[in-house]
């Protein structure tokens, strides 16, 4: 910081050059280092409200069956409903309420880690706040980012919100059981996703019945 005398007698310019968004990125890096030190694999689950993030986490936990070795940070504007739904599966859950913010940020995750008992934990899921725009701009320090979209969101979800899909390591299309009823063609959504992000696996699932869950587990590099 530099202070320079300006025009008038008591007027000063304080040169700051402070990068504001960079703060979240450096905090995210610190979170990642912390996960690495504790040998924890952290996965950020993003997607719209109701796309099936909580149901997917529950389905993965059920399939993996490793209870207390998994921790979940459940982001939500104000409630703890999802945290309670996930706790049933035996994982250690910490609830983070963002209040009026529309996304989790690296600082909230940093605080949540302090509240988590990470002893023996090998895997951490972070359920992001339901939103397809902001979380893309705010990395949390997770090793992998998965975005869940569902056929009930209509046929244009991916072309309308390409940004978050490009940021994702794995793209999941949920509720394929409802595709016909919704008049949505999963192959078209897959094409849209591949155009924006050719490297991310695109997996069709039914999180309620468990169809496709082994593929998701595989794509995330998790062992059953």
């Amino acid at each position: 910081m530099k202070i320079i005398k300006s025009k008038g007698p008591e007027i000063f310019d304080i040169e700051l050059e402070k990068a504001l968004l960079a703060k979240n990125r450096s905090l995210a890096k610190a979170n990642k280092k912390r996960f690495d030190r504790s040998k924890i694999l952290a996965i950020d689950i993003m997607g719209s409200i109701g796309s099936g993030k909580t149901t997917l986490i529950k389905a993965i936990l059920k399939k993996l069956g490793i209870g207390k070795k998994v921790a979940v940070i459940a982001g939500d504007l104000t409630t703890s409903i999802d945290a309670e739904r996930i706790e049933v599966e035996g994982a250690h859950v910490v609830q983070v309420n963002t209040g009026k913010e529309c996304h989790l940020d690296a600082n909230l995750i940093h605080q949540a880690i302090d509240r988590l008992k990470l002893d023996g934990v090998k895997l951490l899921f972070i359920e992001n706040v339901g939103n397809l725009i902001c979380p893309g701009e705010f990395p949390l320090g997770a090793h992998k980012r998965l975005v869940v979209t569902s056929v009930t969101e209509g046929p244009y979800m991916i072309v309308k919100h390409p940004y978050i899909f490009r940021e994702a390591d794995v793209i999941v299309l949920n509720k394929i059981d409802l595709a016909k009823a919704m008049k949505v063609n999963p192959s078209q959504l897959q094409k849209d996703a591949k155009k924006i992000n050719p490297n991310a696996p695109f997996i069709r699932i039914n999180a309620l019945s468990g169809i496709g869950i082994p593929k998701v587990i595989n794509a995330l590099g998790l062992k059953t």
Binding site: G8, I11, I14, L16, L21
Partner: peptide, 13 residues
Amino acid sequence: GRECILKRIQVVR
């Protein structure tokens, strides 16, 4: 194009 920078503040002391 992704930055957000607070460059300077002009104050009276």
